[in-house]
Design a protein around this nucleic acid. Structure first.
Lengths: 347, 347
DNA sequence: CCGAGAAATGCAAACGTTTGCACAATATCA
DNA sequence: TGATATTGTGCAAACGTTTGCATTTCTCGG
């Protein structure tokens, strides 16, 4: 009996002259307990205001009914959209969601992995930092056969369940769209290539150029962290001397929005002089003037897929030799004003 | 010894010929354990790859090292900003954050309260649903003396720690600002008055009108859920016949942004014909054209204050008769293009 | 060396719930 | 009525860690 006033199944058992194991089984709808006993137990539990202690059950079962989620930052559109869907879905399945931010620090990611393991989460979903290249700190989850799913920023050559957007195709479609609008001199603003997202979008950009027999120009591609300040600096470099590029494919929407702002402030007409495409279809792309064409990654679908994968892994109990699959969530180019008009020749 | 391969303090104790209690005390830096023993224990723990089981410690201590957070929806700017700050801060204090969404459903909120209690969270922070008027489902937290903090959408007449923005003053400043710009016919778009936020902003609007001897006109105030569709409908009603209002104070930014879009699409010049002010200083207000004047609620400060309050309550162990205080986080009017220019007479 | 006090460690039980196996109660059939 | 099969419940231990109180070990002073 706790020093606290909280009722336990010991109290219910005492009231009904039953054993605690019968009470436990009745509360858990065990087939061997009579319907009559179940009713008596449930009624007494209600009467006493009994509330289960998840830590006790979890210790006994080695199941916490909790899922861990590590994202770079919650307030970015894409992670927030995914978190929203995941939390709602997990709630339906009776799981709590522990949310964690790595803030793009590998050190913090490692600490979070250990903390979540200590909490004995039943599964873990991760969008890695920009700098995670060695994933061995996740090995403990694999060794203990705890479901592990990577999404968005995912590992190369690490046998684990992966759910990602079609970044290669996204880069390809964005670039091809600019070409179809008549653009011949297309800039690509990318991020650090340690991250799969940016290397694949870049590869798609390169492929589209090649397919349309346009030259790949090294000085037309930029790599840096995708902050607003960096975007302003890059814009200044792009537009510091003529000839200006006639199209820009930015690897994220923050950069695209910032470029648009720079153009507006410096008398560069969008889309007339230069077309702009972003990535992620952040709601902000819709409300700026002109609205920005962007690649939609379907975060709702991705969130649902992540939860479905976690649930499948929890049920399945795959052996550690199991070869995990990779799921690609389709992307879609959403055309708006920032790339409107232009040549129809190559359509 | 677990059927799993995980090491426990029993294994460390066996390796070092010590009792499990000594190992536990050594790992927890207990003053009664010699430095030498602590070192031996830590070293063996590292060697064996020991990882604590938080559920076991939590059961023994009745402390989960977890904080629950219930918000209406994660993806709204304000809750996301607060969640971001809270999670980072709680991480520093060694707490995990369980994130939950009520989706503005009272039923869901009640279920979440029970789930989080069952998880034995060490504290709970809540922004209530629009429809929560009876807060008795939170009583269990008060009875068990588990720290409970309400923020943003907070209860009336319920002895609990409250942290909120100065909504009265926000409504007052917004309205006064429009008046100072020469507006004489000011609309206010509000939400459901069961929610403290909207009733207080409305009160501020009324007070500013009164202070400046402008009449309060019932037909110039609208109440509905603050969706984009509702905002479009209200805009259509506002601008369906002349004379148009010359100022609009919208109680949230989504509504303000939608009004701006409506005006742009219907040939109403902002700010020349009608000025618009929103609430929350959502980053979107900055990037639309024209940018929107909005009331900033300082979500970073609020998130920090919430965590500080939780930590204080966890340390303090107030008796249940304790009278909880209310903290007001200052607000600030951020002037932008949507309310620029105009009369300087009443400055 | 001995005794007293301080420092360090061990024993045993606690925490609340679940479950394998044993036992009791009930139902059915000869 | 007795034997057997089926249904329902109880006993005891498990889970991993922490901590009150008891015991042991060490240190210092006489």
């Amino acid at each position: 009996m706790s020093a606290r006033s909280e009722k336990t199944i010991v109290d219910i058992a005492a009231e009904l002259q039953l054993s605690v194991s019968t009470v436990s089984r009745a509360l858990n709808d065990h087939p061997n307990i009579s319907l009559k006993t179940k009713e008596r137990v449930r009624k007494m539990a209600r009467k006493l205001g009994y509330r289960p202690n998840a830590m006790a059950a979890g210790l006994r079962n080695n199941k916490s009914r909790t899922i861990g989620l590590i994202v770079p930052r919650i307030s970015m559109f894409f992670p927030a959209a995914i978190t929203t869907v995941m939390q709602n879905k997990l709630q339906e399945y009776g799981y709590n969601l522990i949310i964690c931010q790595s803030n793009d620090s590998l050190e913090q990611e490692i600490a979070l992995v250990n903390t979540l393991y200590s909490a004995r989460v039943d599964g873990l979903a991760v969008s890695a930092t920009l700098y995670t290249t060695d994933f061995s700190h996740f090995d403990i989850f694999k060794q203990q056969n705890i479901p592990l799913v990577f999404f968005d920023r995912v590992p190369k050559d690490y046998n684990v369940k992966v759910i990602k957007g079609d970044d290669f195709r996204g880069g390809y479609l964005a670039t091809e769209h600019l070409i179809s609008k008549g653009c011949k001199d297309i800039v690509h603003i990318s991020g650090p290539l340690t991250c799969n997202l940016y290397s694949e979008r870049l590869a798609g950009y390169k492929d589209a150029l090649q397919k349309h027999k346009l030259p790949y120009k090294k000085q037309r591609v930029f790599f840096h962290e995708l902050t607003r300040d960096n975007a302003l600096q890059t814009a200044a470099r792009i537009f510091e001397k003529k000839p200006y590029p006639d199209g820009i494919f930015a690897t994220n929407d923050t950069t695209a929005i910032t470029l648009l702002e720079y153009c507006r402030n410096n008398g560069i007409q969008v889309p007339q002089q230069c077309r702009i495409i972003g990535y992620s279809n952040d709601p902000r792309t819709e409300i700026v003037t002109p609205s920005i064409t962007s690649v939609d990654q379907h975060p709702v679908t991705m969130g649902e897929r992540i939860v479905a994968a976690l649930m499948e892994l929890i049920q399945a109990r795959h052996p550690s030799s199991y070869k995990h699959s990779q799921e690609i969530v389709p992307i879609e180019l959403v055309e708006r004003d920032s790339s409107a008009g232009g040549a129809k020749r190559k359509k």
